[in-house]
Amino acid sequence: MIDAALSGLPSGAAYALLGVAVVLLYRMAGVLNFSIAVFGAFGAFIMVSLFERGLPFGLAIAVGVLAGLALSAAMGAVMAALFPDTDPITRSVVTIGMAISLFAVAFRIFGDRPRSFPPLFPSVSYTVSGVSLKLSGMVALGLASVLAFAIWLFLRRTRIGVQVAAMSTRSTTAELLGIPVRSYTVAIWALAGAIATMAPILAAPTRQADFTSLGLLVVPALAAALLGSFHSLGLTVVAGLGIGVLEAMAVRWPAVSTWRTTLPFFVILVVLLWRQRGEVWDEAR
């Protein structure tokens, strides 16, 4: 049972990383990005294509992450240029437009057949008191936690972090104070894009890896972000890992195995409704 649970860690780490990217963009750039996993899938597919053409694995990953970063930054620049003073809902609808366009572009470039992703790490496992720990799972867990913690620390402890928090609530006011809102916004999108590219690279070796599936990784990631209230990076990481573990355990449970991908949805629903029970009114006072 524990082995089964641990086998969900790479997927869980992917959800966690994407969730972190979603939370970052929501908190700092005021947008719920439905296309974030598509950016990541783009980077990952570029990585795999380069690897298939003989580029060294490490270099291919670097280029892939950079590509995801660049694509996300470009989209961030579009958002900053066209929707400077727009409400989060409209911006989020814009990212639906981005997702649809990018899906189409990706089918053009990569096709829709699954690719085989090389495993990131040799399949080494260590046995600690009867439980076998896979290297890949441990590294995935570590990567997600460390990244989230580093970002949290940066936002918390630096003046730029304060300025970013300020611009996320009132961007016009922030600009009037001389905070370079557009540059910061693009930088956040870039960072989110890089993180989002790591997610499919981690998860793809263990699952069906066609472009659509990787692009729709956004659904569990959104679930993780939701459980983190679109605010807490730590909770998001925990929730993402939890969803991954839950899915992996459900595989072993025939009664729910078929429906396992719907499980998180119902869990989220219950948690959310319970947590939001006091939110009788919208924020507009």
């Binding site: 304060v162 928090a165 300020a166 609530t169 922030a174």
Partner: peptide
């Protein structure tokens, strides 16, 4: 313009509501 030394206090008390008083000032 802001960096050239122009400061515009908008109508309607535009504090950064989620930030502390000190962080509001640090943003500036």
């Amino acid at each position: 313009r802001a960096r050239r030394g122009l400061s515009h206090v908008e109508q309607g008390r535009t504090v950064f509501g989620d930030l502390s008083v000190v962080d509001n000032l640090l943003a500036a």
